[in-house]
Design a protein around this nucleic acid. Structure first.
Length: 302
DNA sequence: AAAGGTAGCAACCGCTCGATT
DNA sequence: AAATCGAGCGGTTGCTACCTT
């Protein structure tokens, strides 16, 4: 069945959003809450299509979004998750609650993909023929090498890893102040998202956003998105993985992760199944079990 | 100082899916 | 059952700032 475009494209403005448009959009959402995007252009007078309004909100204006440099730990998480999930940016974003899938995707394409390719060719000649867009661990030692060498502080990368935030972002920070009322109640991202989620006027969009997914639905949402249910391991497999992981008690977080990766590699080589994401969830989250602020405070893996 | 090249990122495009009418 | 809508997703594009020559 054919579906008409979200807008008739006549008289629709495209390109970068101006601060004035942002203010109009934020003001409208403050009053009505996000959702019913189709009515936003007509209600606000914005010459934008509904989809553009929604994207602007979810990728840029929505409260709780962290902008600017990615931390080494965030880099590490993205690399690990991309290795296991592939280009499932929304699923990856669900583990990095302050980042949008678009941000992560851009960061991967512009920074990490090159970085990994470079390291692959430098440390593992056998990597050279592989596609860096789907980086896989070939061995614990190689992953360790990569891990160690991804730390921007330990190698003189010419990449502009710490580029300042765009100047436009600073102008939208003013707009973000409009949202202070939402944010003031708590300084914790989890609390912010939770409180927002509790706010009935925002339930519809915030509750369904990828960024808040682990807060509202737990990482299983990412699991469902990435695996679609079809790639999940059986209960028996999960139990064996989890019990094997429990035997690693007392190891450091990084060693546990490496050990878990090793175990999973072995399991995958034996079963040729896709990774059960509960395994990933388990070693990423450890005991925190979805507590995002704890994830973010984990020691840098890279 | 100027021109050309490059990198980074915001935004768009096209598609799918689930819910609703 | 079909049509429509809202939302989500991944890939791609185009603008702009920065870098190099």
């Amino acid at each position: 069945m054919g579906r008409p475009p979200c807008c008739d494209k006549v008289g629709i403005k495209k390109g970068p959003w101006t601060p004035e448009e942002d203010i109009i959009l934020v003001s409208y959402i403050q009053e009505h809450g996000p959702g019913n995007w189709r009515s936003v252009p007509t209600s606000t007078g914005l010459l934008r299509c509904s989809k553009s309004c929604r994207l602007r909100w979810t990728n840029y204006l929505r409260p709780g979004i962290k902008r600017g440099n990615f931390t080494p730990h965030e880099e590490g998480m993205i690399i690990h998750l991309q290795a296991l999930l592939g280009n499932k940016w929304a699923a990856i974003a669900s583990y990095l609650p302050q980042r949008t899938d678009n941000d992560i995707k851009n960061y991967w394409n512009t920074h990490l993909k090159k970085k990994i390719k470079k390291l692959q060719s430098a440390f593992e000649p056998q990597f050279a023929s592989s596609d860096s867009s789907s980086y896989q661990y070939s061995s614990k030692s190689s992953s360790d090498k990569i891990c160690n060498n991804l730390d921007p502080s330990t190698h003189g990368s010419s990449l502009r890893l710490n580029q300042a935030a765009p100047t436009y972002a600073s102008s939208t920070e003013n707009i973000s102040r409009l949202l202070e009322g939402w944010m003031r109640s708590s300084s914790s991202p989890k609390m912010n998202a939770s409180k927002l989620h509790q706010n009935s006027s925002f339930d519809s969009s915030i509750g369904s956003s990828a960024v808040t997914a682990p807060l509202c639905h737990g990482p299983m949402k990412a699991e469902q998105e990435a695996g679609g249910g079809g790639n999940l391991a059986s209960n028996e497999e999960l139990e064996s993985i989890l019990s094997a992981e429990n035997m690693n008690g007392g190891l450091g977080w990084e060693r546990q992760a490496a050990a878990a990766i090793d175990d999973e590699k072995k399991r995958r080589s034996e079963t040729h199944h896709e990774p059960p994401l509960a395994f990933l969830e388990n070693w990423l989250l450890g005991e925190s079990g979805g507590q995002v602020e704890e994830i973010l405070e984990l020691p840098p893996l890279f």
